[in-house]
């Protein structure tokens, strides 16, 4: 068999996809929460970086994995809250505020890194901890499947569990309902007594929490140190993954897997004299096309509703609106 194909169909490759997917899936869920609240968070890049940094530093100085987890999560949630503060209280545009936060995170982590270690590059001089890898008892002994799904870092399993958690949180709890209500129509939400600013704050904090897990995984699982700019654009790729997944949990899981697959395959292809750039381009191209298709479909729906409303016939309007609500969830 062709060496490329044989390596793709190996269990090691499938294992690698899950590994590479983890730091994309977390922030993608984070982006989706903020999207559903109608305040897109493009600061996940900075949030992950800050959490990755504080996780490593706290674990190195306290020797406690638990405290490191708390510190990383707190840092991420705080960044989300900070973005909400800039956006809602200081009335800064959320996109520009997020761009500033990303810069702040990139600069501040290197600055603090230098202050703590005297090194501008990484924390390799520190003895920091990593989250453990787990063998799943029964699954482990199944051939092939066991080799792919067992033995991952605990945070990889957390990321997989985060998908149903996201679903329950956003679609089965009052908070999730409020977040989606605020995202779909803030004025309507306000008119039924929802505090829009507070809900957006919660959504951005949740978004920060998801991002924090991604950051912690990077520096305390994927590798065992913090290095400057180690997120390497994953916070932005997460926006693509969330968009491609339609901001829905299963969609995001699949799109994160796609991005994980393509990024893993690029490593193999680079050694094979095939232009890896074109392969790496594919998921972004697919996302762009998906974005266009989603938008065109939504526009068609809006046009249809508008058309029917023009020749007003209550029965027809009801039928169309019902159809739209069933398929889209909103207009």
């Amino acid at each position: 068999m062709n060496p490329l194909l044989s390596s793709i169909f190996s269990t090691g490759f499938a294992f690698a996809i899950l590994r590479v997917m983890t730091p994309l899936l977390f922030p993608a869920l984070g982006v989706a929460v903020s999207e559903l609240a109608g305040s897109v968070n493009i600061a996940l890049e900075g949030i992950m970086l800050i959490s990755a940094f504080f996780g490593v530093i706290v674990s190195a100085f306290t020797g406690s994995l638990f405290l490191a987890l708390i510190a990383g999560l707190a840092a991420g949630i705080l960044m989300g809250a900070l973005l909400a503060y800039f956006h809602l209280k200081m009335k800064a545009d959320i996109i520009l505020g997020a761009i500033a936060l990303n810069m702040f995170a990139a600069g501040m982590t290197i600055f603090l890194l230098f202050l703590f270690t005297g090194d501008k590059g990484s924390t390799s001089s520190l003895q920091s901890l990593v989250f453990p890898e787990i063998d799943i008892p029964l699954l482990k002994s199944i051939p092939v499947i066991g080799e792919i799904f067992s033995g991952h870092n605990v945070l990889t399993y957390v990321s997989l569990l985060a998908v149903p958690f996201f679903y329950v949180l956003m679609f089965k709890t009052p908070l999730g309902l409020r977040i989606r209500a605020v995202g779909q129509n803030p004025h309507a939400a306000e008119s039924v007594g929802i505090n829009v600013d507070r809900i957006k704050l919660y959504a951005l904090m949740l978004s920060g929490m998801f991002g924090a897990f991604g950051g912690l995984y990077l520096s305390m699982g994927y590798v065992s140190w913090f290095s400057r700019d180690m997120t390497a654009g994953r916070g932005f790729i997460a926006i693509a993954a969330a968009t491609l997944g339609g901001n829905m949990p299963v969609g995001i899981l699949l799109s994160s897997l796609l991005f994980g697959f393509v990024n893993s395959i690029a490593i193999y292809i680079a050694s094979l004299n095939v232009p890896s750039e074109l392969i790496q381009m594919i998921p972004y191209l697919v996302t762009l096309i998906a974005l266009a298709v989603f938008a065109i479909r939504a526009q068609r729906k809006r046009d249809k509703v508008g058309e029917v409303l023009e020749h007003f016939d209550p029965e027809a309007v009801k039928a169309v609106v019902k159809d739209v609500i069933e398929t889209e969830g909103d207009i």
Binding site: F86, M90, K91, A92, D93, L96, G97, I99, A100, L101, M103, F104, A106, G107, M108, I110, F111, K120
Partner: peptide, 16 residues
Amino acid sequence: ELVLVIQSVIIILITA
């Protein structure tokens, strides 16, 4: 990277 920190502060203050 000090410059990145300054940039972010300036941007926030101007856009807020």
